[in-house]
Amino acid sequence: MTTDIAVRAEELTKFYGAHRGIEGLDLEVRAGEVLGFLGPNGAGKTTTIRLLLDFLRPTGGRVTVLGLDPRREKAALHRRIGYLPGELAFPGRRGKAADLLRFFGDARGGVAWSRVTELAERLELDLSRPVHAMSKGNRQKVGLVQAFMHQPDLLVLDEPTSGLDPLMQQEFLGLVRDARAAGQTVFMSSHVLAEVQQAADRVAIVRAGRLAAVERVESLGRRAVRTVEIHFADPVGAAEFAGLPGVAEVRVDGPVLRCTVDGKLDPLVKAAARHEVIDLLSAEPDLEETFLSYYYHAEGDPDAARAGA
Rank of each mutant, 00 (worst) to 15 (best):
63 V>I: 06
288 E>W: 11
11 E>I: 00
108 R>S: 07
241 F>H: 08
11 E>C: 02
265 L>Q: 12
114 S>K: 09
37 F>T: 02
242 A>C: 04
128 S>P: 00
140 Q>S: 05
142 V>A: 10
197 Q>I: 04
290 T>M: 09
296 Y>K: 14
208 A>R: 11
26 D>G: 03
176 V>D: 12
24 G>Y: 02
22 I>S: 02
96 K>I: 00
45 K>L: 02
249 E>A: 14
201 D>R: 05
84 L>W: 10
293 S>R: 15
276 E>P: 13
90 F>M: 06
237 G>H: 08
109 G>Q: 05
82 G>Y: 05
255 P>Y: 05
243 G>V: 02
100 L>R: 00
223 R>I: 01
95 G>N: 01
193 L>C: 09
50 R>F: 03
238 A>D: 01
78 H>P: 13
162 S>D: 08
187 F>T: 08
70 P>D: 13
229 E>Q: 14
259 C>R: 11
147 A>E: 06
290 T>Y: 03
153 D>Y: 00
106 D>N: 05
122 R>A: 04
36 G>W: 02
65 V>W: 09
171 E>L: 06
253 D>T: 09
93 R>F: 10
52 L>M: 05
217 V>H: 03
260 T>D: 12
127 L>M: 03
79 R>D: 04
119 L>I: 01
81 I>A: 14
38 L>C: 01
134 M>H: 03
248 A>D: 12
131 V>T: 04
144 L>W: 12
43 A>Y: 04
133 A>K: 13
274 R>P: 07
218 E>G: 00
164 L>A: 14
111 V>M: 06
274 R>L: 14
31 A>L: 00
58 P>H: 10
295 Y>M: 14
62 R>T: 14
154 L>C: 09
56 L>D: 09
29 V>K: 01
232 F>Y: 08
244 L>Y: 09
261 V>S: 15
20 R>Y: 01
235 P>N: 03
70 P>Y: 13
281 L>S: 15
160 P>D: 06
293 S>Y: 08
249 E>Q: 12
261 V>W: 07
122 R>L: 06
190 S>E: 10
60 G>E: 10
296 Y>I: 11
84 L>F: 11
185 T>W: 11
237 G>S: 12
292 L>G: 04
188 M>N: 15
162 S>I: 07
70 P>I: 11
217 V>L: 01
299 E>I: 15
176 V>C: 10
250 V>D: 06
187 F>A: 08
213 A>T: 02
22 I>G: 02
227 T>A: 11
53 L>I: 07
86 G>S: 06
